[in-house]
Design a protein around this nucleic acid. Structure first.
Lengths: 189, 189
DNA sequence: TCACAATCCTAGCATCGCTAGACATTCGAG
DNA sequence: CTCGAATGTCTAGCGATGCTAGGATTGTGA
């Protein structure tokens, strides 16, 4: 019947409703205040409904993280394609750091809270696409080194800056100098 | 009275007992399973005793983190002084990554769980000492760049590798190549 | 119309961090 | 030596958490 399809469509709608609500609540008041009860009240359903969509609170965070990774990938691509030739790395790094400061809760979900995401060979397509964007920027700069390893190191450098900066571990007045040093280290062979 | 001093000594002993127990439990079963109740049972006191030493669970984690930073500093110093001249960076990076994999819970406490630690100008002495160790390795390599900023970038690169590796985000078979690329990027002028 | 299936909610369990107030112990002044 | 006061510790409990069992309600298809 067509009713079946409508049901599935409504279910999918409600699922994104949950994910969006969780993300907004986290961005507003932090992840600890994203509780099942408040989330249920927000979407105007009872708590067990959430468990018919997700295995638990952790799975909801994972879903938010996955959505965030997709957005991050889009941001990467936009930065890379909009950059002047030779400035791709600068654009990528800037986009990465901006994303981290603009969406702290989302960033946290992706890199420290998500625990149900699998990596490696059988990772979801979204993850591979995100790394592919990094690869597109770093691989041309790798020279005779392994492009994958080179990408990972470059990624780690940017990510480290983002993480330490988010934790208040770095001097705010050196922000620009850090970025220029980073670029200078990885931009040329 | 001398009783007073004995009391303080016993209190200090019990405080380190708490911190050590928390750390061991976290390293054994992860931080979520370090609950006030289990911690109290472990040290054979009731729960309110813990609150006479620490403001709450978060403060206990902070104490563990602070102790971990002190250890990390010692590891840095040992690696640096034991290294052949010119190999200080390699020794530091190796020590950093080893520390992260050997003490995952401690590492987590330091860099993602601790929230009561203050940084910047009025940071505890332990934190400054830790950064000073990094500075001792990176500053000589800074050339004409700001040595502080250079140190922060180098630290971020190593830290990023540690964090992403801990989250299973990096290819295990590229571990050595990543390290050599990192060194090559920061070791020479 | 009616039996059945899918959907949803109420109510509750175990556990968490944390705290008030009672109890016990030790101290110091008279 | 005595006895109130101060200190230290514990029992019991509060509010809130993630999660789930079982009943009520709705909608479906014969």
């Amino acid at each position: 019947m067509a009713t079946q399809q409508r049901r599935e469509r409504e279910r999918a709608q409600r699922e994104t409703l949950i994910v969006n609500a969780a993300r907004e609540m986290a961005e507003a008041d932090g992840w600890p205040s994203v509780t099942i009860r408040k989330l249920a009240e927000r979407i105007e359903y009872s708590q067990p409904v959430l468990y018919s969509h997700f295995a638990g609170r952790g799975a909801i965070i994972d879903a938010v993280a996955l959505q965030g990774i997709a957005e991050l990938t889009a941001v990467f691509k936009a930065a890379r394609t909009a950059a002047e030739p030779g400035d791709e790395l600068a654009a990528l790094a800037q986009a990465y750091l901006d994303f981290a400061t603009a969406n702290p809760a989302l960033f946290e979900a992706i890199f420290t809270l998500a625990e149900g995401l699998t990596f490696g060979v059988d990772a979801p397509e979204v993850l591979k696409a995100a790394f592919a964007e990094l690869y597109a920027v770093f691989a041309p700069l790798a020279g005779d080194r392994d492009p994958d390893a080179f990408t990972e190191v470059g990624w780690a450098a940017i990510h480290g800056l983002a993480v330490l900066n988010r934790g208040g571990r770095l001097r705010p007045d050196l922000l620009e100098q850090r970025l220029s040093i980073l670029l200078e280290r990885f931009a040329r062979p």
